[in-house]
Design a protein around this nucleic acid. Structure first.
Lengths: 209, 209
DNA sequence: AGCGCATCTGGACGACTGTCAAGATTTCGT
DNA sequence: ACGAAATCTTGACAGTCGTCCAGATGCGCT
């Protein structure tokens, strides 16, 4: 083994460990953000949610924006996983519709804090230019996710969906966001209303045969 | 004039002036919030946007939460005004629909910073219990506003709107929010797409005759 | 074993925050 | 015009923030 090969192996292992730590810290940052929100999250608080001290954050990240940005990117991956498992296989239109509605209700309750973080960060993107690109990209991913389900639903119903993808996503997002606010307000009917309105909207998107 | 009457007049005038100052400071706070967002707004920054020094804020408000809460309430009044002027009188369904779409596009552009503040505060309400009641109340007001227009639209079309009020509001809000993000991202088509999708959704809400 | 580098700690820094109070200034009825 | 009450300014306070760094600790290689 040449010295060059050895050096390569060493640096590769170091890079791997480096990336692993970054992910670990980003996970701690993510839970902190989802609990406190963007406005109240500090680097020291993030470090306390990890097994390290606050100084290490500047060893793995340039500054606070770098931490948050990396977080958001990691959040996106979790998002896609969450949405992808909503509907795996459904052979009937009604089955797909029920699976979609059930999945949204489930993630509304189980991942409530993560969802509120998403809406918080999307609002921050309206103020801070630096977040905008990442937020827009995540939004596009979510839009594609919704569109995959809706267009498959139209397929199963035997009719193409005449609604633009962006509009479709926006409406479902509106429904979900209102349900989330109701959920945190502990007002009753948040989950059942979301379920019903998702089915309702889904039915409207495909023209009656 | 008795001494009691005199004292009453004096205290009444003082209360008026007191309230006037509160409104003045709240206005400064609102412009600051709409420019910087909740996370980056400080009391000193608010005072700099007014003609007073930072200390006076604690003369007119208990603490920071009191300032923000009062702000939000004042914001609500502005909201209602803005939405109310969208559609004053329309005698045809198509006229009402066009007026609604035009109004939303206009306020999207003109009051963009205020709208992003609203979404920011609504996100904060998902984290901070103290904002929740006010945010929910404003949301209900906006819902009623949208419902007034939509139900009137159904009336003009000669058919009742079978969609629940909450669901209707949520979908329009979703459309508007996405348009706002696109507007700040300077992506093209934000206004035209909003206009088209509002007309589209409005048409879908009322069953074909 | 001992060297060298990666990793991590804990404290220090200046800037900023919300809050408060003492005193200066203005307002206003008499 | 005088005095009291309302109003406003200014500076201070105890914290917290992001950032940085000197030094401790750990680990892998020869």
């Amino acid at each position: 083994m040449s010295t060059a090969e050895k050096a390569d192996r060493v640096s590769r292992r170091q890079v791997d460990k480096f990336e692993e730590r970054r992910r670990e810290l980003a996970a701690a940052a993510l839970t902190t953000l989802s609990e406190l929100g963007y406005a109240r999250t500090s680097l020291r608080e993030i470090a306390q949610n990890s097994s390290f001290s606050h100084g290490v954050l500047h060893y793995y990240f340039r500054d606070k924006v770098d931490v948050i940005t990396y977080c958001v990117r990691q959040y996106k991956a979790a998002c896609v996983l969450r949405y992808d498992q909503i509907v795996t296989t459904a052979d009937t239109a009604d089955g797909l519709a029920r699976g979609f509605a059930d999945g949204l209700v489930a993630t509304l309750v189980e991942d409530a804090t993560m969802h509120r973080l998403w809406y918080d960060l999307r609002s921050q993107a309206l103020f801070e230019e630096s977040f905008r690109a990442d937020v827009t990209e995540i939004d596009a991913t979510l839009e594609r996710m919704v569109w995959r389900i809706v267009s498959r639903y139209g397929e199963l119903r035997g009719a193409p969906v005449p609604t633009p993808s962006a509009m479709t996503y926006a409406m479902f997002d509106g429904l979900f966001q209102q349900a989330l606010l109701r959920h945190f307000s502990a007002r009753p009917g948040a989950t059942t209303d979301l379920h019903a309105s998702v089915l309702d909207l889904l039915g409207r998107l495909v023209p009656r045969s």
